[in-house]
C-alpha cells in the first residue's frame, strides 16, 4: 500500500511532516528526555565515582558520590596490572572480523529467505529460528568437542567460527528485506539483472539502516561476550576485554574499583561506533532525500 508513494517521500524532510510543536509540548518533551537520561546515566555516574575510590570504600554507605580523595591512579593500574592493551587489540580484531563476516553472510542469506522462492525455504528458516531457541549452555560441550577436533581451541578462529554465522543476523536482515517492494525487484529482473546484481545494486544500498543496526548489535555482542572467550581462550596474548575484567575477580577478593574503571574505558569504542553509525539507521528509506 505504500510502495507507490516512496519516491515522493524522498523529496520531503522528516521535520516538515511533524510541524512545529507548541512551546509547552517542547518543554514537556525535553523534561521527559532529560529525566530518562538521568535514569539511564545514574548508574554510570556511580560507576565513575566508584572507579575513583579505594577498593574498601566502593560499597560503603552512605554513598560518597564525589570521592574526597580521587584515586586517578586506578586508571593507570588497569593497564599495568593486566595486559589490558593486548586485550583491547584482541577484542577489536575479533569484533571487526566477526561483524564483517556476519554482515556479509547473513544479509546474503537473508536475501534468499526474503525474496527468492526455493525448495525447503520455510524448513531452513525454521531451523535457523529454532537454533535461537536453544540456550548455548546446552550445546556448549558438543561444540567444544568439535572445536577441539578441528584444533581451534585457544585460537581466535574458534570464536569467529562460532559467532559469525548467526541466526539472529539472518532473521534481522530478512525482516528488513521483506519490506522492500517486490515491484522494484521485478522491474530489475525484467531489465535482465541477475539476482546477484539485484542484491548488490538494489538491496544493499537500500538496507543501510538494517546493516548499520546489525553492525552495532554484532559489535556490541562480540565486544561484551564473556562465556565464549572464557571457554575458548586461555593464552594471555589471545584474551579479550571481558576476560580481563574478570581477572579483577579473584578467588578471595574482587577489585570493584578497577572493574568499574576498566568497564568505563571499554565502553568508549562502542559508544564511538554508535555515534558514527547512528546517522545510517535513522536515515532510513523514507528520509534518504533529506538534503534535497
Amino acid at each position: 500500500m505504500t510502495s507507490l508513494s516512496r519516491t515522493d517521500t524522498n523529496k520531503r524532510t522528516a521535520r516538515s511532516t511533524l510541524g512545529r510543536p507548541s512551546l509547552l509540548s517542547t518543554l514537556l518533551i525535553y523534561g521527559l528526555l532529560i529525566a530518562i537520561a538521568f535514569i539511564m546515566l545514574l548508574p554510570f555516574v556511580w560507576m565513575f565515582s566508584a572507579s575513583l575510590k579505594l577498593d574498601k570504600d566502593v560499597f560503603r554507605f552512605p554513598i560518597e558520590w564525589i570521592p574526597k580523595d580521587p584515586q586517578w591512579s586506578n586508571y593507570e593500574t588497569i593497564w599495568t596490572r593486566i595486559p589490558f592493551l593486548t586485550f583491547f587489540a584482541n577484542t577489536l580484531k575479533l569484533t571487526v572480523i566477526i561483524t564483517f563476516l556476519q554482515l556479509a553472510t547473513s544479509s546474503f542469506a537473508a536475501y534468499a529467505f526474503a525474496k527468492l522462492e526455493f525448495k525447503g525455504r520455510d524448513f531452513l528458516f525454521l531451523a535457523y529460528l529454532g537454533s535461537i531457541a536453544i540456550p548455548w549452555q546446552v550445546y556448549m560441550i558438543p561444540q567444544f568437542i568439535l572445536m577441539r577436533e578441528l584444533d581451534l581451541v585457544d585460537k581466535h578462529m574458534s570464536l569467529i567460527m562460532l559467532q559469525a554465522f548467526t541466526a539472529f543476523g539472518v532473521f534481522l536482515m530478512r525482516q528488513f528485506f521483506i519490506s522492500v517492494p517486490n515491484e522494484i525487484l521485478d522491474a530489475a529482473r525484467i531489465d535482465g539483472m541477475s539476482e546477484y546484481g539485484i542484491y548488490f545494486r538494489i538491496m544493499l544500498p537500500l538496507s543501510k539502516p538494517a546493516l548499520a543496526t546489525l553492525t552495532i548489535f554484532s559489535a556490541v555482542f562480540v565486544w561484551n561476550d564473556f562465556m565464549g572467550p572464557l571457554i575458548y581462550l586461555y593464552s594471555e596474548s589471545r584474551k579479550t576485554i571481558q576476560l580481563g575484567l574478570r581477572m579483577f575477580i579473584q578467588q578471595y577478593s574482587t577489585d570493584y574499583h578497577l572493574i568499574m574503571a576498566a568497564s568505563l574505558i571499554s565502553l568508549i569504542p562502542v559508544i564511538i561506533l554508535f555515534l558514527a553509525f547512528q546517522r545510517f539507521f535513522v536515515e532510513g528509506i523514507g528520509t534518504t532525500g533529506i538534503k534535497g
Binding site: M140, F144, I145, R148, L230, I231, Y234, E236, R246, M247
Partner: peptide
C-alpha cells in the same frame, strides 16, 4: 593455563569433557 577464578570449575569441566589433555589439573 590461566582460567577465570569465578568460573574455574565450569571451564575445567567443559575442557575435560571435551577431551582436553592438559597434564596437570589444579583442584580448587
Amino acid at each position: 593455563i590461566d582460567l577465570a577464578s569465578a568460573d574455574y570449575g565450569e571451564v575445567i569441566n567443559v575442557r575435560l569433557t571435551g577431551g582436553d589433555d592438559t597434564d596437570i589439573i589444579t583442584v580448587k
